[in-house]
Structures are given as C-alpha cells and as structure tokens.
C-alpha cells in the first residue's frame, strides 16, 4: 500500500480513488481467476471416454395381448402388394388392431442400396405407401419413415422410390444425421455395448412397423425382418460381420416392433443382398404379416426355399426370447390369392 497520500497529478488528476479502482480491478482478477481455476481444477485428469447418456435398448413397442403364443400371423398370397397387405391385415382384425387414433408410427424400411424398386433390394415403395395409408386410416397422427442405409441415404431413398412413396401419402422421411445417434448398451448384450444407434428417430413414437423384403444374404443366410433392424445401427457397424448370427440375435432384443410385414411378393434368391439383375429375383407371391419378427423370418426362410438349419440366427433369437421359430404355433391365417 502507498505510504504517502498520492498527490493529485497535474495532468491526470489522479486520486486515491483511481488507485483503489485499479486495486479493485486487480482484486477482481484475483478472485475471478482463482475462483475459476479452483472451480474447474481437475486433479485426476480426464477419463478415457467422455460419459454420454447410454440407452439400454430402442424400446418395446409390441402390444401386450399379442406377445408369445398369443402372437398373430397372416400370410396373404398374391402379387399386388397393396391388396395382399390389406387382406392380410384384415384377417388379423384390420390395421386398427395395431394402430390407434393419435399414434405416432415409425416405419422402418430397408432402403440399404441405391437401386430401383424393380431390382428388389429395398422395401417396395408401393408397400410403403399402402401401409402408411392404412396407418393414417387407422387414425395415426403421423407416420415417420427411416433407415440408415449402406449407400448414401438420400440417394437410396430417392432411387428406391421410397422418398416419393412417403411424400405421396403424407408420411415424413427422416434421414440419419449425427445428432440422431445415441449409444446403446444392451443389458444382456455381448456385442451391443456403447454402440451408436439411430435412437433419435424414436422420439414421441408409439408404434413401430418393420417393412422388410425377403433377400438372399451370403454371410447371414437371409436378410429379412431381423436383419432389417441392423439399419438402426450407426458407427462402423460392419465389424459385427465377424459374428453375424450373434449380432442379429442381439438386434432381435434391441427393438420389439409392433408389427412386422415381410414382403415375399418377389424374393431375391441369388446374389443378395444387393442383387442387381432381374434374374436374381423370383416371384414367390407371399405377404407375411406378423407380430413376432422371429416367426415372420421363419416363414421367410421357407419363401426363400431354405431351411432353418441354414440360418442359425432364427433359432438363436428364439432361444434368447425374442419370438417363436416354430411359427405354426401362431396358427397363421393363410389367405389364398383371389
């Protein structure tokens, strides 16, 4: 501190008050820097991963009265998708049995590749339009359509005709973007730990419908309903091909859909899951509608002309409690073509 009273300077008119003001400034710097420093002090050092909110799954959207052996299944035969899906649903009590007024419905399509609908590598746009329309008719307040495809998302939705189909019936397309991904650690999962998933699209959603084509798949045996859930994964998910049956089994536990619609109108029987030629396709004329994704895929295996032994994940998913591999126990209603 100054020992003599500061003489007012001729030029500056400096007074003791000015000095005190500057002292106040220095004291403020001391308090601010000291406070901030001590408050933000980190003696331990950073942790390995920045903690993020981790989900335990994407949700259970199944209807309680359609679980297990009470599940419902219809198989409608024919080649007109709008017709077969409508008749199949009718046999299960109509779309109104699954979708009620005010429901916000998320439709997960398979839009994996940027190929035209005729090549059968993606969910058929006519099917999407028909199902979304039925949802709206049942009173759905909104219908969302999404997938995290393998090729560029927007191109996939465009070329596959799914974007136009959604637009045509008033459904809203959600393209994957970083903000929509959140890590999931499946409690019983060995593979799905801290893995980014497209969880953001489920905000406000009350019902989930999986719309999947029936396709050949070299590594997995077949790509149908359960493999379609793979499209909710983000990150460098292809490391999971080291254990494809394991990951599909966990996917069956990651999400329980309200309804599964497996489109076997035309099946991709060779060169899957990309196809690329009309000669890879075969008219199989079946539309499977089921509440149980495992049972739906068990039918899909037959549509492809394969055996359950060829596709281990179906029995593994059933053993994990995701559904029934023995679909006959659901007493499927078979509706022959008119």
């Amino acid at each position: 501190m100054s020992t003599t009273a500061a003489p007012p300077s001729q030029e500056g008119g400096f007074t003791r008050r000015d000095f005190l003001r500057r002292l106040g400034y220095a004291a403020a710097v001391t308090v601010a820097a000291g406070g901030l420093g001590l408050w933000r002090h980190d003696a331990q050092g950073p942790v390995v991963q920045s903690p993020k909110k981790v989900l335990s799954g994407l949700g259970d959207f199944s209807l309680p009265n359609f679980r297990g052996e009470a599940g419902k299944m219809a198989i409608a035969e024919g080649l007109d998708r709008a017709q077969t899906v409508g008749r199949g649903l009718e046999a299960l009590g109509g779309m109104g049995a699954f979708i009620q007024a005010g429901d916000s419905v998320l439709i997960k399509v398979n839009a994996a590749f940027a190929t035209p609908p005729a090549l059968g590598a993606t969910t058929h746009p006519e099917l999407l339009a028909a199902v979304a329309k039925l949802c709206f008719q049942a009173g759905a307040s909104q219908v969302l359509v999404t997938d995290n495809p393998i090729n560029d998302p927007l191109t996939c939705f465009r070329i596959s005709g799914l974007e136009a189909a959604a637009k045509q019936v008033g459904a809203q397309l959600i393209l994957p973007r970083p903000a929509l991904f959140q890590p999931v650690s499946l409690p019983t999962g060995r593979l799905l730990q801290q893995w980014p998933t497209l969880a953001g699209v489920f905000t406000g959603v009350s019902k989930v419908i999986l719309l999947s084509p029936v396709k050949d798949h070299q590594r997995a045996g077949a790509s149908m309903t359960l493999k379609n859930i793979y499209g909710f994964l983000g990150g460098r998910r292809n490391i999971f091909h080291q254990d494809i049956n394991g990951i599909i089994t966990e996917l069956a536990l990651l999400l329980k859909p309200t309804l599964c619609i497996l489109d076997g109108t035309v099946a991709m029987v060779t060169n899957g899951p990309t196809g690329g030629s009309l000669s890879d396709l075969k008219e199989t004329g079946a539309m499977v509608i089921a509440t149980d994704p495992v049972a739906a895929d068990a039918v899909g295996v037959e549509i492809l002309g394969r055996r359950l032994d060829d596709i281990p994940y179906i029995r593994m998913a059933a053993a994990a409690g995701a559904g029934l591999a023995d679909y006959e126990r659901l007493k499927p209603v078979v509706i022959p073509a008119k």
Partner: peptide, 24 residues
C-alpha cells in the same frame, strides 16, 4: 486448455500465481 476442455488439469493451477501477480 481451460477454454478447450472446461477443466484445469493438475499443476496448471500454478498459472494463477503468474496471473494474479501480473494483475497487481
């Protein structure tokens, strides 16, 4: 590093000494 991470690691607290002395 405080700006970038929101934290002040370990002995970086010594910076306070220089800051405060400089302010005076």
């Amino acid at each position: 590093t405080l700006l970038a991470t929101g934290t002040l690691y370990g002995s970086l607290l010594w910076a306070l000494v220089a800051i405060i002395l400089t302010a005076f």
